[in-house]
Simulated assay, not measured.
Amino acid sequence: MRALQLFLVLLGVSGLAYWFTLDKDSQVALVPDQPTSAIVEIVVPETLSANAQVGKVAFEAKCSACHGANAVGQTDIAPPLVHKIYEPSHHADEAFQRAVALGVRQHHWPFGNMAPVEGLTRADVTMIVAYVRELQRANGIN
Rank of each mutant, 00 (worst) to 15 (best):
K62N: 12
R133I: 07
I141V: 07
R98Y: 12
E118G: 07
Q53T: 15
H91K: 13
A78W: 00
H83Y: 07
Q106F: 03
A123Q: 09
E41D: 15
F7N: 05
Q34R: 14
P88F: 03
A99W: 01
C66V: 09
Y18V: 12
G119V: 05
I141D: 02
V129D: 01
D93I: 01
L135C: 03
G112Y: 06
L10V: 04
A115I: 01
P80G: 06
Q136D: 04
A101N: 02
D93M: 02
Q53L: 14
K56P: 00
H83W: 02
V132P: 01
N51E: 10
D25S: 11
Q136P: 03
Y131W: 03
T126G: 08
V57T: 15
E87V: 04
A52N: 13
A123K: 00
P88M: 02
N70F: 12
V44Y: 06
S64E: 15
L4E: 10
P35C: 11
G12P: 05
V13Y: 08
I128G: 00
D23R: 13
T126P: 02
C66P: 12
A78M: 09
F7H: 06
T121M: 04
V57H: 05
T75D: 14
N51D: 11
R122K: 14
S37L: 15
N70P: 06
A101S: 06
Q5D: 08
A58Q: 08
Y86G: 00
V117E: 05
D23F: 15
A71H: 02
L48F: 15
D76N: 15
Q136E: 06
A52R: 02
E60Q: 15
V82D: 01
A58S: 05
R122V: 13
E118C: 00
E46R: 05
S26Y: 12
G55A: 14
S64N: 12
Q34D: 12
G119D: 09
Q27P: 04
L81S: 00
F20D: 05
D76M: 10
I77H: 06
L30H: 09
A95P: 01
Q97M: 11
H107L: 08
I39Q: 15
A38I: 10
H91F: 08
V43E: 14
Q53W: 12
A138R: 12
G119F: 02
V28P: 07
L120A: 08
N51F: 03
V132K: 00
I85P: 00
T126I: 04
H108W: 11
D93N: 09
N139V: 03
A52V: 11
E46M: 05
D33K: 11
F7S: 07
A123M: 11
I85Y: 04
A123C: 04
V117F: 06
A78P: 02
A69I: 07
H67W: 06
K84P: 08
A52M: 13
V100Q: 00
M114S: 14
T36D: 13
H91N: 09
D124Y: 00
